[in-house]
């Protein structure tokens, strides 16, 4: 019989304690933000899809060695290069120039091994997080084209 009454007392008390905790939440500041009207600051190391980086002249730093392509676990990078004759100190030399750099973002797992394996610092993570589409073709990025557009915007 004593157990019965102590249960009622203990139970009632525990419920009141719980209610007082949830009641206190009324007076706490709001932590949610009203996306998309408000956004939060992305962290500096946020990993979006990769992007090509440009050198001072505006052309990609990439030398088309293909290290990123080989390192990728899900082979989502494909690139091509063309051989172009350039004149250095009066001599004509052949140089490999990047002609195509496609990223299939649908299979990318953002592990960062392409960025790590690049010996020329030519790729980095973008800060793009607003990616949404109903078509998967929208996630096949032409990064060379993207770099061109970004450089034009800058100029």
């Amino acid at each position: 019989m004593g157990g019965y009454f102590s249960d009622i007392f203990y139970g009632g008390k525990s419920l009141l304690v719980g209610l007082s905790i949830t009641f206190r939440e009324f007076f706490k500041p709001t932590v949610t933000v009203q996306y998309p009207y408000q956004t939060i600051k992305m962290s500096a190391r946020f990993r979006g899809h990769i992007e090509l980086l440009a050198d001072d002249t505006g052309s990609p730093k990439c030398v088309a060695c293909g290290m990123c392509q080989r390192a990728c676990p899900s082979s989502c990078i494909s690139l091509d290069s063309v051989s172009v004759d350039i004149e250095v100190d009066g001599k004509v030399k052949k140089k490999k120039v990047l002609s195509r750099y496609d990223l299939n973002f649908t299979t990318c797992s953002l592990c960062g091994q392409c960025v790590e394996n690049c010996n020329f610092g030519a790729i980095d993570f973008s800060k793009e997080y607003n990616l949404a589409s109903t078509r998967k073709e929208d996630f096949h990025f032409d990064l060379l084209d993207r770099l061109k557009r970004l450089e034009e915007k800058k100029a």
Binding site: G11, S14, L15, V17, G18, I21
Partner: peptide, 9 residues
């Protein structure tokens, strides 16, 4: 602990 662990239910 107060809200859940101590709760009778």
């Amino acid at each position: 602990a107060a809200l859940v662990t101590g709760n009778i239910i």
